[in-house]
């Protein structure tokens, strides 16, 4: 009989959450903070699936459904986050291009 139970998973979730918070508050880099957000979301997902396994009524899949939605929305959020980073990158580049144009004239 295995000795692993619900608290083991919850502790992993708590550790993920705490480390995610640390990443969020100590990082300066925007992409680094987004990584911390992903850790927090994973922490919540571990909780959801652990509770679904141990606490929910037999046959109920609410926690797993929730986790799937979280994964989907996390992907959408990451896509928008990257698009904004890309926009910033392109803004930089356009500024450079304009400068070189000015110099040519």
């Amino acid at each position: 009989m295995t000795s692993i139970g619900l608290p083991h998973f919850l502790i992993v979730g708590a550790a993920l959450f705490a480390l995610g918070m640390v990443t969020v508050v100590t990082r300066r880099n925007a992409v680094g903070i987004l990584m911390g957000v992903e850790l927090i979301l994973n922490a919540a997902n571990v909780n959801f699936i652990a509770f679904n396994h141990y606490v929910a009524a037999p046959g109920s899949l609410t926690g797993q459904v929730f986790s799937i939605f979280v994964i989907v929305l996390a992907a959408a959020e990451a896509a928008i986050g990257l698009a904004i980073v890309l926009a910033i990158y392109q803004t930089f580049k356009t500024i450079d291009v304009q400068e070189t144009d000015l110099l040519k004239e």
Binding site: N29, V31, L86
Partner: peptide, 27 residues
């Protein structure tokens, strides 16, 4: 599939792009 195949790849892209412009987008 989604976290590793999608999100992590996006994050790596973002890192490489921001590395290229020399500075991190800071808050």
């Amino acid at each position: 599939l989604i976290y590793i195949g999608g999100i992590l790849v996006l994050i790596l892209f973002a890192i490489m792009l921001t590395k290229q412009i020399g500075g991190d987008p800071k808050l």
